[in-house]
Amino acid sequence: MATAQVVRSEWTKIRSVASTVWTLSTAVVVTIALGMLISALSKNEFDNLSQREKLSFDPTFISFAGTGLGQLAMIVFGVLVVSNEYSTGMIRASLAAVPKRGVFLFSKLAVATALVFVVGMATSFATFFLGQLMLGDLKASIGDDGVLRAVFGGGLYMTLIALFSMGVATMLRSPMLSLGILMPFFFLISNILGNVSATEKVGRFLPDQAGSKIMQVVTPVDDDTPYGPWGGLGIMALWVIAAVVGGYVLLKRRDAQ
């Protein structure tokens, strides 16, 4: 009963600040628009591809090409939801109102995650269908083997990346510090580590590298990734759990400031 009150209160918090709307709408627009653009470009380039590249051609995954950039807005959303509490000093009011810190944190994360889940799923399905529209006769169908899993997985991926950011922000508290670490990490570092052959074997266990496997339908030729789509999402989920547990432990132990 008390938890239901806190959930309601966290919902009021989240819907009453502008950052919720602009971060989530940026995520939606960027993911869809970039997905459509790259889908359209891929269609035009298809004939120039080598035989091998044609075999690896994955219309579902291509329509999700905007996720890499769109997820950055999801990360901003996740970071702000938590670190706003600290940057405004609101954390004191929040914990005075809800002194059970576990109830406070998990209600906040539950509300924000539920919102991201709805937005992420809608974005994922929209991205897929609009992307396929751009791909013309190269398109995949939602009924094809593994496609529904990939599209549903795309929504889960965005949800998990936001939740991971919330966990990290709970640990770091400062919005600047959290964004300063997460943004370059997911935009650059993780991609580099995952694609350079020297670090590839480690890099592919990073949350986004592992998690994005869920959006793949066609396994590239010569792919030796040691996990499947759900395995990859599971690895990502482990990262998320670690971040959230770390955040909870620190919140519990620290003074509220």
Partner: peptide, 25 residues
């Protein structure tokens, strides 16, 4: 009333009090 105000600058006074009220029924 603590020294640090603890109000999100982008939130209205009404909504600030509303979330506080809701959290405590």
């Amino acid at each position: 009333l603590l020294e640090a105000k603890g109000v999100h600058p982008g939130r209205s006074a009404y909504n600030h009090l509303l979330w506080l009220a809701q959290s405590n029924g």
